[in-house]
Amino acid sequence: MTLKESPDGITVHNYRQNFGTVHSLLLNLQDGELEFTFGSPLYNELHRLKTGGKFPYREVKVLLPEGEYGPDFWAVMEE
C-alpha cells in the first residue's frame, strides 16, 4: 500500500498543495517491530526498530520530490 503512488496506493508527492507523504509507519505487533520512513517510502530509506530499541541516527536525509497531479487529483471519486 505505501510502496505505490496514488491512485494505486496511498503515497502522494503533492507537497506544494500540502498533501504529501511526510512519513509512513507499519507496526508488526506479533514481532514487536515497527517499519517506518521519513518522507515517501518510494524515495527514502526504510528503517526497522524493535520494541525498546534505540534509533541509531541523530539526523536522516529526507527526499521530498514534487509530483505533478493536475486538477483530477482533487476530483471526488465515486465507487
Rank of each mutant, 00 (worst) to 15 (best):
F36W: 05
G67L: 02
Y57T: 08
Y15E: 08
K54G: 02
L42P: 00
V76Y: 09
G9I: 09
N18K: 11
S40R: 02
E79Y: 10
E79N: 15
G53N: 12
T37D: 03
E35W: 05
H13W: 02
P41A: 06
Y15A: 12
S40A: 05
G52S: 06
D8V: 05
L27S: 08
E45V: 09
T11Q: 00
P71R: 03
L34S: 07
L25A: 09
A75D: 11
P71C: 01
M77E: 10
T37Q: 00
R16M: 03
L29H: 08
E35P: 00
E5D: 11
P7C: 03
L42N: 04
R16D: 11
T11K: 00
E79G: 12
K54N: 11
D31E: 15
N14E: 04
M1W: 06
K4E: 13
F19T: 13
T2K: 07
E59K: 15
L34D: 01
L64E: 10
G70Q: 04
F73G: 06
L26S: 13
L34N: 02
E59N: 14
L64C: 08
L63W: 05
K50F: 02
K50D: 10
G53R: 08
N28P: 01
P41W: 02
F19L: 15
H23T: 12
G53H: 06
E66K: 07
E45P: 04
K61L: 15
V60P: 09
S24W: 06
P71V: 11
T51G: 07
L26E: 10
P71I: 06
K61D: 13
I10R: 01
K61I: 13
G20R: 01
Y43I: 04
